[in-house]
Computed example of a mutant assay.
Amino acid sequence: MNPLRIAYSPCPNDTFVFHAWTHGLVVGGEPAPEVTFADIDVTNGMAERGELDVLKISYAQLPWVLDEYALLPTGGALGRGCGPLVLTGPDSPATAADPAALRGRTVAVPSERSTAYLLFRLWAAEAVPGGLGEIVVMPFHEIMPAVRDGKVDAGLVIHEARFTYQNFGLRCLADMGEAWEAATGLPIPLGAIIAKRSLGAERLESLTDTIRASVRQAWAAPALSRDYVLAHAQEMDPAVADQHIALYVNEFTEDLADAGYAAVEGLLTRAAAQGLVPPVAPELIR
C-alpha cells in the first residue's frame, strides 16, 4: 500500500493519537503517512478543496465535505467538560451574569467553520439578542493575547486555553460546552477525522483499524510519544500538555459509538434548522 497523506494540528491530543501510526509502530497497519501540520482553519479549507487523503477537521465543516470524504469513527475529539470558552478582559461590560452586553462587540474566533464557532453561534442566538459585532478569524494561539491587549472585545478559545486563560488576566464569560450539554445531554463534538471515499471500503476499514490501534498504543505506552508531543506543543508546559491529552483523548477518540454519532447528528441538525449549515443526509454521517 502507498502511504497516505494526512494533515492534523500540532496540538498534544493529535500528536499523541497519531504518534504510533506516523512512526510505523502499528504492526500490520497502514504504512506511516506523509504528515502536514496545520491549524484547524487551514485543514478545514484543505478538506473543502479536496486536498490530502486524511484530515482532522471541525465537525462543523462536515456538511461541505461529506460527498467526497467519509467520517471515520476513531481518532477525533469529542467529550464532556471540554467545550470552547468565550473570554473577555477584566474590564469588559459583558459578564457571565450579563452576556447580552457582548451585543455589537468584536469577537475573535479560530475559524468561521469551526465547531467552536458553530456552538458559539447557537449560544449567542439566545444569549446575545441584537447580535454580535465584527467576527475576526485568527489562529487560536493569537486569540488570548489579542483579548488581553484590547485588540478585540472577546475571544472564542479552544484547546489548552481552558487551562491557561487566567495567566493572561482574562475571565470566562461562558462555556460553550456547558451550554451544549445542558441543552442536549450529549457529548461535545469538536474535531473529526475524515478520509477520501475514493480510497474504497477496504482501505477505509484498514485506515480505521490503524488509527484505533495508534490510539490504543498511545494509551498503553504514553512515554513513547512524549518527545513527539512536546516537540510540537509550541513551548507548552508539559503539565498542560498532559491535561490537554487527558481531556481530549477519551473513549470517543477510540470509537464514536452511538453516543458520539448522536452528538454529531444533533449538532448538525440543530445548526441546519437555524440555517447555519447545509442539511446533511444521515447516511453520509454513519
Rank of each mutant, 00 (worst) to 15 (best):
T210A: 08
Y59I: 00
R113E: 05
V65P: 02
L122N: 10
P278A: 03
E283Q: 10
G29E: 12
F18G: 04
N44L: 05
I135L: 14
M176F: 08
G75C: 09
P278I: 02
A259C: 04
D242Q: 13
A263H: 02
K151D: 08
G200P: 02
A20N: 02
I211K: 07
R80S: 06
A221V: 01
G191S: 12
T74N: 04
Y8K: 07
R5Y: 07
E51V: 14
A262Y: 06
G83I: 06
P90T: 02
L276Y: 13
L62T: 09
G79K: 10
D255R: 15
A127L: 05
V26C: 09
G79V: 05
P278V: 01
S9W: 03
L284I: 00
R216T: 12
D227K: 14
S111T: 04
T74V: 13
A182R: 15
E30S: 13
E142S: 14
A272W: 06
C82F: 05
A47F: 08
Y117D: 09
R113K: 15
G155I: 02
G28P: 01
G191R: 09
A38F: 12
G83M: 06
F140A: 13
A124W: 09
F37Q: 01
F16R: 11
I6L: 14
W123I: 01
D258C: 00
P10M: 10
E48Y: 03
M176Q: 14
I194Y: 10
A271W: 12
L85I: 01
V42W: 12
F18A: 05
L72G: 04
G131S: 10
P63M: 02
S214D: 04
I57S: 09
V128A: 10
D255Q: 15
V280D: 08
E254A: 15
E126H: 14
A241R: 07
L156M: 04
M236K: 08
R286T: 03
L119P: 02
G76E: 05
I143G: 03
A259E: 15
S58F: 11
G191W: 06
E68G: 15
I193C: 05
R49W: 11
M138E: 07
Q166P: 00
L87Q: 09
H232S: 10
I285F: 08
A146T: 01
E126D: 15
A257W: 03
M176W: 07
T269N: 09
R171V: 13
E34I: 01
A146H: 06
V240Y: 10
P90Y: 01
L230R: 07
V240F: 11
A97L: 13
A20H: 08
L224Y: 09
I193N: 01
F252E: 03
F168L: 11
S58L: 08
G76T: 06
I40G: 09
A179T: 00
W180H: 12
P187L: 11
S198L: 04
M236I: 00
I211S: 06
K196C: 08
Y261N: 07
G45F: 06
H244F: 15
L118I: 05
A241T: 03
V109D: 05
D67W: 12
L66K: 13
S225L: 02
T43R: 14
Y165E: 02
H23S: 05
V277G: 06
L78E: 09
Y165L: 04
A96H: 09
L186G: 04
A47N: 05
D242L: 03
I188H: 08
V54R: 11
R286W: 12
A182I: 00
G185Y: 07
A218V: 03
A161R: 10
A161I: 07
